[in-house]
């Protein structure tokens, strides 16, 4: 067993980012029902049985268990917060749950800087981010805005 690496986001400044820059893809999964159950427990929310009961999911016309959209979006939000570095302040994050993630799917978390500008002396990054599955389908398009201090203000 390896040790779990626990890290703060790396030290980055506004000058470390450029428009069009792609972040390193982060792979989550294969996803398991356990990921969903852990999230349901953390949120104390067990209201949608199709998130953890295959029989109920199929009876409702779904192909099987669907993982929670807010769970998948939370993974993406977490990575955005790490991509922008430890000095950044995340201002906005938005996601749309347009596709399903099922147990045994793999989630590839991707993102890029779409715009950089300076506002009131602070660097601002606009980010496009999304989750792609192993079939290349975009299940969770998102966008984010973060304020990042300049190395040389």
């Amino acid at each position: 067993m390896g040790t779990v690496k626990t890290v703060e986001p790396q030290s980055l400044f506004f000058e470390d980012f450029a428009e069009g820059q792609e972040f390193s893809t982060v792979t989550k999964g294969p996803m398991m029902v356990g990921h969903q159950v852990r999230w349901a427990g953390a949120c104390d929310n067990y209201d949608s049985e199709f998130h953890h009961d295959e029989h109920v999911a199929k009876a409702q016309g779904l192909p099987g268990i669907i993982l929670s959209g807010p769970l998948m979006a939370s993974y993406l939000l977490t990575e955005v917060a790490h991509w922008v570095g430890r000095h950044a302040r995340l201002l906005r994050f938005a996601d749309r749950n347009v596709g399903s993630t099922m147990p045994r799917d793999t989630a590839y978390l991707r993102g890029r800087v779409t715009k950089t500008h300076v506002q009131d002396g602070l660097g601002v990054l606009e980010i496009e981010c999304w989750i792609e599955n192993q079939r290349g389908e975009n299940t969770t398009p998102g966008r984010a805005v973060a304020a990042v201090p300049r190395r040389t203000p």
Binding site: K5, T6, P9, R38, A42, C43, L71, Y75, H82
Partner: peptide
């Protein structure tokens, strides 16, 4: 529990 669920080790 929440940061374990969202896999955020900060």
């Amino acid at each position: 529990r929440f940061h374990h669920a969202t896999m955020d080790p900060a």
